[in-house]
Structure formats: structure tokens, C-alpha cells
């Protein structure tokens, strides 16, 4: 407790003495009037910045053997019910086109499902100790931004003779046409949420260990990402962890996927647990 008190005290001192962004050794979510879902919102200026050093995921196969993104800068806001994180990281390549052997830029925030003394394994949680994950991907962002969900958006020069769902006998938009389309899109027929179109470029999930990632039914997931001069700036919005208060801390972890380095799934740069504190409105 003494250490925490010192950290908080140090944060206050730094806040009052410097003009640049306030750095913290933990992620501190400061109050905001409303849920913030855009990276450019001025409310972010009130939040201190935590610079999280990233590690290669080399604990479970398939591993990432070569480091890529070095660090991610994090700010957090909360309005009681919701919590928003803004992640900034350097990325010289924009990877938002899916395809064979093509991978996407992405980022994620991970928080234990429950505030508990002994947090789950930081590597995707563990059995009986689930974690909640909020995940953003660059291709979903492009889709939300208006890129059409068709093959010509990915391959402008593609030539397609005919799709069965374009048969003249099928009325556009009819149930019969949708059924025909699903015949050749089994993932869509199965309700796989990887399939577009998308309302948000963010997905909520939960996990109880590596390889157990599953849709986080009922979990809030909003957000948006923008391409900056040096990389990406992404906001991830989720519900505030149950039981979190100004008196009780929990943990948070981050992950970054660099598409040009063929990072996907467990091949990622990640952090361990970082303390997550809540600062309440005065």
C-alpha cells in the first residue's frame, strides 16, 4: 500500500510540474463526462500516459521469435459504467487488406473478468480464471470506414465471371438469394463473427487459456482507429471491470499485432499484467 501511495503521490507531483504528457507506472483511468470512442477527443488530454514495453509472445506455440513493435502508449478514461483505452504505437506499414499470407495490424486490451487478489495467467487467462479481451483490427476499421465487402476491394483488377447468388432467378435481397450466398460462405452460415459487414471494428471476447478464445457474449465492444503519421491510434471501449473502484486495483494487459511481420493469433507482441487504477471524479 505504501508503494501505491508513493506512486499516486509521485503522479500528482509530476502532473503539477511538467508540461508534456504525464507518465505513470500503472494505467490510470481518469473520469470523463461521456464515453469516448474517438481517438481525437480532447478528453484524452486529461489522462496520464503509460508507456508499456512489449515482449514477444514466446510462451506457447506458435510463438513469435522476432520482436517487432517495441512499445505502446496507453491512456484510459472511465465514466463509471464504461472504460475506454487509447493505444498509440509506431507502425511504418499499414496492413489492412486480408488475403493469403497477408496479415492485419491489430491491438487488444485484456482485463481479468473479476477483480481478484491473484489475477489470472496474463497469457490469455487460465481455466476458472477467465479474461475479457477487446480486440481491434485494421481491416475491420477499413470496412467500417466504407471499404466495400467484396473481392474487388481487395483485388481491384479481379475478374469474376459469375457468382451463383447473382443468378437472374434470384431476386436481389431476397431470402433465396441470401441462402444461396451462404451456401458458399459456411463461416457466415455458422454465425462466425469474423464475417462482415461490421458495425464496429472491435470485437469482445473472453478466454480461459491459450487457444480458448471465444466470443464474449453480452460484452460491450466499441471503438475506432485512425492512421497517424507514425502508426496507429486506436480507442477501445468496454464495460468497466466489475468491482473496480478507486480503492481496488485490477490488472490490464495489451497486445499489438504487426501485419507486415506476419503476426497473427498467438504470434504477437504483448505485455504482462500492468496495474489498472481508477481515478474517480472529484
Amino acid at each position: 500500500m505504501l508503494r501505491i501511495a508513493l506512486v499516486v503521490a509521485l503522479s500528482v507531483v509530476v502532473t503539477s510540474c511538467s508540461r508534456g504528457p504525464v507518465m505513470t507506472t500503472e494505467v490510470v483511468a481518469v473520469p470523463a463526462q461521456k464515453p469516448v470512442a474517438t481517438p481525437a477527443d480532447g478528453a484524452w488530454d486529461s489522462a496520464p500516459e503509460h508507456v508499456a514495453k512489449l515482449l514477444v509472445q514466446d510462451l506457447v506455440e506458435p510463438r513469435l521469435m522476432k520482436p517487432s513493435t517495441a512499445e505502446v502508449r496507453v491512456r484510459a478514461l472511465q465514466n463509471g459504467g464504461e472504460m475506454a483505452f487509447r493505444l498509440d504505437w509506431k507502425d511504418g506499414t499499414q496492413n489492412d487488406l486480408p488475403g493469403p499470407a497477408k496479415f492485419l495490424d491489430g491491438c487488444a486490451v485484456q482485463i481479468p473478468e473479476k477483480v481478484e487478489v491473484n489475477p489470472p495467467d496474463p497469457q490469455m487467462g487460465s481455466a476458472g480464471h477467465p479474461v475479457q479481451i477487446t480486440f481491434w483490427r485494421a481491416d475491420w476499421q477499413a470496412s467500417v470506414n466504407g471499404r466495400k465487402d467484396d473481392i474487388h476491394s481487395l483485388y481491384p483488377n479481379a475478374s469474376v465471371d459469375h457468382y451463383p447468388f447473382q443468378a437472374h432467378s434470384l431476386e436481389p435481397g431476397s431470402a433465396a438469394q441470401k441462402e444461396m450466398m451462404q451456401r458458399y460462405a459456411p463461416a457466415q452460415a455458422m454465425g462466425n463473427r469474423r464475417v462482415g459487414p461490421r458495425e464496429f471494428p472491435v470485437e469482445a471476447m473472453m478466454a480461459e487459456g491459450p487457444g480458448t478464445l471465444s466470443p464474449g457474449a453480452g460484452l460491450l465492444a466499441r471503438g475506432a482507429g485512425v492512421r497517424t503519421k507514425t502508426g496507429w491510434q486506436v480507442v477501445l471501449v468496454r464495460k468497466a471491470p466489475a468491482g473496480l473502484s478507486a480503492k481496488v486495483r485490477t490488472q490490464v494487459a495489451f497486445a499489438i499485432w504487426e501485419g507486415s511481420a506476419q503476426e497473427v493469433g498467438s504470434r504477437k507482441m504483448r505485455t504482462g499484467w500492468i496495474p489498472l487504477a481508477l481515478r474517480e471524479a472529484k
Binding site: 506458435p62 486480408p98 488475403g99 493469403p100 499470407a101 497477408k102 496479415f103 465487402d149 467484396d150 473481392i151 481487395l154 460462405a185 459456411p186 463461416a187 457466415q188 452460415a189 455458422m190 454465425g191 462466425n192 469474423r194 464475417v195 478464445l213 497473427v264 493469433g265
Partner: peptide, 26 residues
């Protein structure tokens, strides 16, 4: 098809290259 997340590890692993990534369904 309900569980796959399109990591393409299977595409890399199959020596016969008989698994294909669908960029539309992911």
C-alpha cells in the same frame, strides 16, 4: 467454420497446401 479465426497456421502447416484462406469470410 464457426470456430476458425483465420490465423492461416493450417495453410502454413499443410505440406500439400490443401487448406485455403478465404479473405471474405476471414
Amino acid at each position: 467454420q464457426g470456430r476458425c479465426r483465420g490465423y492461416q497456421e493450417c495453410v502454413k502447416g499443410c505440406p500439400y497446401k490443401k487448406v485455403f484462406f478465404n479473405p471474405m469470410t476471414g
